[in-house]
């Protein structure tokens, strides 16, 4: 404090001059129209530039997250474009362009995606549910799969006009068949143990299968609800029980249910057709 007072006393003359000068300049900026507008425009431009720099720096820092999100979005788009469309017929035309245009006109779209926002979500109960802000008016139907950029979320179970309720993966009644692409395994059932919202169990996988920690688990193409190759999670731990024929596998979920916000509702346009073919009555001899 004493040093500050000493410094003020020593520099009182230039400080007084500066104070009076600053006051005069302030008067100019306040009352002279041209200077005021020039100062205002310059300061706005200056702060806009600063904001742009700041935004650029922040966006650079967030590149990793953005990149991850883009990759996940890309995954969805890829699944829409490549996997979910299958040719109905093969063309043998001599004209290359003709065959391309015909092929495009004869592709079938298996999955329809409807974006929605989660407005309510539970993840600490034994049976958890979520509510989205889209309903039957927007095309949401019971039985539709719900996914987010990170992975699977659940299945729609109730629909009103403008909202829908879904059963999340964190529900004791939720089950799904997984696919492990690294060993091309479509076996077992995934279900939630009710302990931790970050982990689910993969049951009924034969002990002879070479399951390793870190393996990626995605949705299988055997599911008529979920599109294939949507991430479910990664193998967190693998163990074997004595005298058991199955592995005891824990998966770390890809979806962070604590931060669930934007989701996509997925409709399988051929769901009924597939189900009708699965009917065992058809197998009976006529």
């Amino acid at each position: 404090m004493f040093i500050i007072l000493q410094w003020l006393k020593r520099n009182s003359y230039p400080l007084l001059a500066l104070l009076l000068f600053a006051f005069s300049v302030n008067q100019i900026l306040r009352f002279q129209i041209y200077q005021h507008s020039y100062y205002y425009n310059s300061s706005v431009s200056f702060f806009r530039t600063i904001d742009t720099w700041r935004s650029n720096v922040l966006s650079y820092l967030n590149l990793k997250v953005d990149n991850e999100n883009l990759k996940n979005e890309n995954l969805i788009l890829r699944s829409q474009l490549g996997i979910n469309k299958s040719p109905l017929q093969t063309f043998r035309d001599t004209s290359y362009y003709d065959s391309i245009s015909k092929a495009l006109n004869h592709y079938k779209v298996v999955y329809t995606y409807i974006p929605a926002n989660v407005i309510k979500n539970t993840y600490n109960s034994r049976n958890n549910y979520f509510i989205i802000d889209q309903g039957s008016k927007q095309g949401i139907e019971d039985g539709m799969a719900v996914i987010c950029p990170q992975g699977i979320v659940g299945v729609i179970i109730n629909t009103s006009e403008n909202y829908a309720r879904g059963m999340s993966v964190l529900n004791s009644k939720f089950e799904i068949t997984p696919y492990l692409p690294s060993i091309e395994l479509r076996q077992g059932v995934i279900g939630w143990s009710g302990m931790d919202y970050n982990y689910v169990e993969l049951r009924e996988v034969n002990r002879t299968e070479q399951i390793k920690k870190g393996m990626t688990v995605v949705t299988s193409n055997y599911s008529s609800i979920f599109p294939p190759n949507i991430p479910i999670g990664k193998v967190h731990s693998v163990s074997l029980k004595n005298k058991s024929n199955f592995h005891q596998i824990t998966l770390k979920l890809a979806t962070d249910f604590n931060r669930l916000n934007s989701v996509y509702c997925v409709k399988n346009n051929y769901h009924i057709e597939i189900d009708s073919l699965s009917n065992p009555i058809l197998d009976l001899p006529k």
């Binding site: 003359y13 230039p14 001059a17 009076l20 000068f21 006051f23 005069s24 300049v25 302030n26 008067q27 100019i28 306040r30 009352f31 002279q32």
Partner: peptide
């Protein structure tokens, strides 16, 4: 001129000192 003469006079007197 709202402060222009005042600011320049202050600057000049400071330089004069």
């Amino acid at each position: 001129t709202f402060g222009t003469h005042a600011a320049s006079c202050v600057a000049m007197v400071y330089a004069k000192n």
